[in-house]
Each structure stands twice: as structure tokens, then as C-alpha cells.
Amino acid sequence: MTKADLVEATYEKVGSSKKDVAEVVDSVFETIRTSLENGDKVKISGFGNFTIRHKRERRGRNPQTGQEIMIGERTVMTFKASQILKDIVNSNS
């Protein structure tokens, strides 16, 4: 499933053009990105939470060559699915 499929699944519900709905869908993802970029987590009730984590600098190793390298301090995002989403995913089994 791609963004186009999401637009397809959505546009009939509001009786609007695909183009207009595509704009809103883009805006949704852009708004989430901006919020995370600014360090603010995004909590979508019934779906899950997108959160930010700061990683300290640590020593790592290239698994291929065994060479030690420093992995710099960085910020990453993680997604934690809500119990509702976990249940939905397991419902069709």
C-alpha cells in the first residue's frame, strides 16, 4: 500500500476530489514530521505513538570487518503501536 492507495481509500468518504484529499494526506504526514523535528512526540489514539529518543555517542563495531568505530550522538524516532493496533493486526489470523 502506498500513499496513492491511502488517498484512494479516503477520498470517497468526504466526497471530494482525489487531488484535494491527496493534499490533506500530504499535510498530515508533513505535520507529523514537523512536530517530531521540533522534538515533540505525536500520539495518535487508537493507533500508536511516534516518539523521539536521544542516543548518546557509543562505540560500535563494523560487523563485517570487526573494525571499531565511534557512533556519534544522534536523535532517532521510534514508533510504539497501541494495544488497539496490536489487536487489529492479530485479528485476521
Partner: peptide, 8 residues
């Protein structure tokens, strides 16, 4: 609808 579609 967006998040429900993703879940489904």
C-alpha cells in the same frame, strides 16, 4: 480513515 486503512 487514513489510520484505519493502514491498520486494516
Amino acid at each position: 480513515t487514513l489510520f484505519r486503512s493502514i491498520a486494516e
